[in-house]
Nucleic acid binder design. Structure first.
Lengths: 336, 336
DNA sequence: TTGAAAGCGATACCAA
DNA sequence: TTGGTATCGCTTTCAA
């Protein structure tokens, strides 16, 4: 293309300059070049540019499941946090599969990406990330920590979240027995939250209902089945439940509904506050983690790492959306 | 790196060959090279490879909103349809904004992507895609058609979907009056479906309730508000509603619930059948469009276009998931 | 079987 | 202010 462009008597070098660096080129030449380039429909080849300049403008986003609304929101937040710098996002789903993740990470290294935002697959260890480290590609972890690794991580403040839900249920609603329902058993988030949960229950003398504190995959259907099983068993009901996330909570709500158990009998506070939470029946009280902000912050953090800056941004604090499922009364109905 | 690799006495060319093309290289040399490469942690530079070979292994996926579960599912389906060919997916959200879409498409052209899967932003016209055409980048459209353009499109079979819902409501449930609720007014899908809907209603002498056939954005909250407004007004209820998608339907269901209107009074059949549909209260009868299959098919179609093959795959036919919201009885409860 | 050299499309240095 | 030329990392003839 360059050669075509100097079909107006100039050298490629001049054209190259004229198309970017404004200085050092006669205003008139520049305009002529730009006009001609536009006329010919010239489009620079990013691959060549990258090869020559070592420029890196691609960010890898690696997640287990983009279908998860929180993940999708975070992805969008990240894209928003990056777009001004004309960064491009390479997305990959790992399906929580280590082999897949290995494959993907290798590809990203080959692509010479500027950095990687990683929501690690279950079972990810530091060795999995060795290649990235060797290639000196900055990595920011999202939500799930990786054992033995000191990578920067942006994550929801588990202790704070659990604290908010706990405080609301115990202090405001007077719950005496609690369960922490769902979440993948050996994944970071559940482990972290269970820890806070247990500590709080012990400190405030609240009874922990073990059966209702079982793990569950992030699926409404699976959660509903589990809740069904518990409701059909002799297990006593706790006063309230903190549910690992909204998707799981929707399954639980459905089960409670089928057993005609009202929020006053079993209060539910969930975590995430996705859009759907306000619209379920009963509507779902949920601790909002502001997933978009999470993604945006992670993006900024990665950018900071790229330019060697110190990162100073903080995550938006979680906050409780009070709705019906905890017994806080009816949902606000916005009718026009 | 190559230079480092021939620190074992060979030329870069030999190394390059040894690392891929098995023939023409002594078995022993090859092994030595590969061992050394592994030891040194050599990673080929995709940019250089692409530049030299003109190889293209990146596919652009451009969608308005990855947060939409159907879109997310389709994205995953596409990724699955592509992965064996070691293709990489560049994802971008346009937020249904034309300026954004222009920006993104330009980036994709610069990246020299092999092809683009595009779920066009509202208002996209053929001129928007001119650049892609000029760069001879194959495009496959997803779901929304682009006026004046003859690009191949993979889309849900709107007429068939509406037919299934209509038939179920009118023939099996005896509905005499119907509404087609929601969908973006000037977007392809709603227009297509409204057309089928009107034709069917006319043919079968079913009354079309105009007020209940209003457009609505794809948001449960907005849909609920609209339904609220209608329920609070003097508008008569139709016997049944075909709802544009599950997200909208969830909002509608919530509104009906708040007005204590049961499925027998207003039957609802929705479109999409996302996972959540089986778990709402009442559970949502929905025409499944198999979004993953949609994505996979689109991916295959694009691959076919890349290699100049004729595309022969067909889309999975839509099918109705009968649940409670149309009055088909209680949801199957899978209790262990 | 291996090596030398050209070239992919751009940038950047140094002269002119 | 412009042009010549080396270079980025790799593949690919063509000879040796």
């Amino acid at each position: 293309m360059q050669t075509v462009a100097d079909a107006l008597g100039l050298s490629r070098a001049t054209v190259s300059l004229a198309l970017r660096d404004a200085s050092k080129i006669a205003e008139e030449t520049r305009l002529r070049v730009q006009a001609e380039a536009a006329r010919l429909g010239y489009i620079p080849n990013r691959n060549a540019v990258r090869l020559r300049t070592q420029q890196r403008n691609v960010i890898g986003l690696v997640v287990p499941d983009i279908t998860n609304p929180v993940v999708a929101e975070a992805a969008i937040g990240m894209q928003m946090g990056l777009e001004d710098r004309s960064m491009i996002v390479l997305l990959s789903n790992t399906f929580d599969d280590l082999t897949m993740q290995r494959h993907v990470l290798r590809q990203l290294v080959e692509e010479q990406v500027a950095g990687v935002l990683l929501l690690p697959a279950l079972g990810t260890t530091a060795v999995e990330l060795e290649r990235l480290r060797a290639a000196r590609i900055p990595v920011v972890l999202l939500n799930r920590a990786v054992p033995e690794s000191d990578l920067p991580i942006v994550h929801v403040l588990d202790a704070e979240i659990v604290g908010i839900a706990f405080e609301h249920l115990v202090v405001e609603h007077g719950a005496q027995s609690l369960g922490y329902f769902g979440g993948i058993g050996d994944a970071g988030p559940r482990i972290q939250r269970m820890e806070s949960f247990s500590r709080l229950c012990a400190a405030e003398d609240v009874r922990v209902m073990e059966a209702w504190s079982a793990p569950s995959p992030s699926s409404a259907i699976a959660a509903r089945e589990l809740a069904h099983r518990l409701l059909g068993s002799a297990e006593p009901l706790p006063d309230a439940l903190i549910v690992h996330n909204d998707i799981i909570a929707i399954g639980v709500l459905r089960a409670l509904n089928e057993f005609s158990i009202s929020p006053s009998e079993l209060r539910v506070v969930s975590i995430d506050d996705v859009e759907l939470a306000s619209i379920t029946t009963p509507s779902l009280s949920s601790v909002s983690i502001h997933p978009r902000d999470l993604g945006r912050t992670a993006g900024h953090r990665l950018l900071a790492a790229l330019s060697g800056e110190v990162f100073d941004g903080a995550l938006e604090a979680p906050s409780l959306a009070r709705r019906e499922s905890c017994g806080c009364g009816s949902a606000p109905v916005a009718v026009g």
